[in-house]
């Protein structure tokens, strides 16, 4: 099926359930969403709402039990590295490869000639500000640097879509705040569409054009919120009343069903 659509991601009635000792567990119940070209979309929700599972299904790493995912109008059921890049919560770098080799890795898997892939990987390392650390091994880098290498690796095959699964959750607050600014710059330079899963409501609001709010048991989308903050986003906006109001609105949405 190949419908021409301006949406990079279309999820239609995506369901995911698996058997447990106490009956079938509904991880996702008829989740539908669309992500427009070039948009930055955040997905937030309480633990166990299935937001990471949803991201894995969009990335082709897990199979939905019902419904379908279209990327660029094409139905997918397996990883699609030329269209989708993924950044995980952990950097997941190969510990025996240098930063540069790690960024090259997705190109090497495709059989790209060494010279071309090294040049491309160097560009990406420059984009994330790690030119001087190309030859460093992962253990020699800080947590924030490792995650920047992971972002460079996610973008190296020029994907239209970058999926990010709580990529800054393991970083300290200072590093995380700095990474927000860098991610927005990287996004402007790469023009990739981004779907960003996070626990942090402030992070979700600050980064995104649009937010999908999810609830648990069963995992489902309960609200779609447009973020009316102008771009470029600056660090001062973290104190803006609009941001605080949005954050509180989402908080009430998430907190309500549990109280």
């Amino acid at each position: 099926m190949s419908v021409q659509t301006p949406d990079v991601v279309v999820a239609r009635d995506v369901g995911m359930s698996y058997p447990t000792a106490s009956g079938r567990f509904m991880a996702l119940d008829r989740v539908s969403l669309t992500v427009g070209d070039g948009k930055f979309v955040s997905i937030v929700g309480p633990s166990g709402c299935g937001k990471s599972t949803l991201l894995q299904i969009i990335g082709g790493l897990a199979a939905a039990t019902s419904g379908e995912i279209l990327i660029d109008g094409v139905r997918i059921a397996a990883p699609h590295p030329d269209k989708i890049g993924i950044v995980f919560q952990e950097p997941l770098l190969l510990p025996w490869k240098s930063a540069l080799e790690n960024v090259e890795f997705p190109l090497a898997l495709r059989g790209e000639p060494r010279e071309a892939r090294t040049a491309r990987a160097r560009d990406l390392l420059a984009l994330v500000g790690l030119t001087d650390f190309a030859d460093s091994l992962p253990y020699q880098l800080s947590g924030g640097m490792r995650q920047r290498v992971a972002i460079a690796r996610g973008l190296v095959r020029k994907p239209r879509l970058l999926l990010m699964d709580e990529p800054f959750a393991a970083l300290d607050e200072q590093t995380r705040t700095r990474m927000w600014g860098e991610l927005l710059q990287i996004r402007a330079a790469s023009r990739a569409t981004i779907v960003f899963v996070t626990h942090s409501l402030v992070e979700a609001v600050y980064l995104a054009d649009e937010i999908f709010v999810m609830a648990a048991r069963p995992g489902r989308i309960i609200e779609r919120i447009a973020v009316n903050l102008p771009r470029p986003r600056t660090i001062d906006m973290l104190g803006a009343p609009v941001l605080g109001a949005l954050r509180n609105r989402i908080w009430n949405l998430i907190a309500e069903p549990q109280s």
């Binding site: 082709g60 590295p81 952990e90 997941l92 025996w96 997705p106 898997l109 095959r157």
Partner: peptide
């Protein structure tokens, strides 16, 4: 072999042979 590295390699398009040769073996 860390499972996460295998998942990541799959996401970047690694075939089964590539996963064994480039992730399993060195790990």
């Amino acid at each position: 072999v860390p499972r996460g590295l295998v998942t990541a390699a799959r996401a970047f398009g690694a075939t089964r042979t590539q996963i064994y040769g480039r992730v399993y073996l060195p790990a």
